[in-house]
Design a protein around this nucleic acid. Structure first.
Lengths: 208, 208
DNA sequence: TAGATTGTTAATCGATTAACAATC
DNA sequence: TAGATTGTTAATCGATTAACAATC
């Protein structure tokens, strides 16, 4: 399982392929060529084939790829073929918006619990869960086998909460706090910075 | 202004540098070397210098960079030195969470209006704005000079709303809908897929 | 079979890293 | 001056694209 030598851009495109394939499956498409799969995304047939070749041989020359099979294979690679539980820390506007979002489950994620420090938020319901106090987080995680967390706390709190999550057995953190946080090498931290995304857009759009 | 030949990774790191510099400025730091700036982010001093060199000479040998000046320069490059107005289309959970978010303004963005089709949402207040009906969108944009939009509608509606935005003069769209949308070449579309972000995390975290 | 399309190798392209003379 | 640090060039590394024999 030499997973770490897969180039990050390849893993990213796996998510794009999966999304496209799931849409195609919804339209009843059963098989697809690398060329047609590439057409919807902004890439090429060679890229698609090269990417998939990192993980095995999934297609048939002259035929293409079987949509349902390829979906299954990619989900296995991304480890989303079985639903993975996720905790949300920080139940402010963004945290609660994520908790209410309906689309995660069919993609293989279930937001199973939420935590916050604020008395104003503890006890509130969002999506399927009731917000708990963050003091309960450690014990909750130690009794479970949850490995993924969404961090949606203010930047000042982010590093402390990150430390707590790492100590409690979390191995992957999606960090929405606009600050760079550190974690042990065994823990993957993936930053998401919505302001930075807007800045990238701004760069490409003239003013005035 | 040969902006289009700047490598995308460089523009992305500009946002990271800016965030770090703004934090340093908040701590009262006045000058900084490329080495120290790189240390916080996950990059190197050579990378920092090379990136900045795309835009001019901002530092002084033996001294480093002046924090406040570099902040100003990067904001000019990203065009966020003056506040840019942004419309939000789709006032569901995510759209409203973004509207309530306090952090955009000091980064140079102001969410000035929100639109939705749903009678349930029109008239609701979120952040500083009241949600309008999407039928008002075209006229609203034609009377203004707003060039940036956040698209937070369901995937089935995304392409139609994108078309409407493009026809109304929008030149940059941050697309949260989990679907690939097409726009004229003159319009920049930047996709943000939160599920895909979770998938990337999942890939790196073992199951069981 | 003929046409289509894969998996894979080789060639190209672009981005990062290292090194260092110039300069404060 | 001596030490620090820039801007920039050259070397390395990694990712994308093109091409094609193998195969359905």
């Amino acid at each position: 399982m030499k997973r770490d030598l897969i180039p990050p851009p390849v893993v990213w495109r796996l998510s794009l392929y999966l999304r496209e394939l799931q849409m195609l499956a919804g339209e009843g498409v059963e098989k697809i060529s690398s060329r047609k799969l590439a057409a919807g995304l902004h890439t090429t047939d060679a890229q698609v084939r090269k990417d998939l070749a990192c993980f095995g041989q999934f297609g048939r020359p002259g035929v293409g790829y079987h949509v349902a099979e390829l979906i299954q294979r990619i989900r296995e690679i991304l480890k989303t073929d079985k639903v993975r539980p996720v905790v949300v820390v920080g139940a402010g506007d963004l945290g609660r918006a994520l908790l209410r979002h309906k689309g995660f489950i069919e993609k293989g994620f279930s937001l199973v619990a939420a935590f916050d420090v604020s008395a104003r938020l503890v006890g509130k319901t969002a999506g399927d869960v009731t917000v708990r106090h963050i003091d309960e987080l450690r014990e909750f995680l130690q009794k479970s086998d949850i490995r993924l967390a969404v961090l949606a706390v203010p930047p000042q709190a982010a590093q402390d909460v990150c430390n707590l999550l790492c100590e409690s057995g979390i191995q992957g953190i999606l960090n929405f706090a606009p600050i760079s946080i550190s974690a042990p090498k065994s823990v993957t931290v993936r930053p998401v910075d919505l302001t930075a995304e807007l800045e990238q857009l701004s760069f490409h759009v003239p003013t005035q």
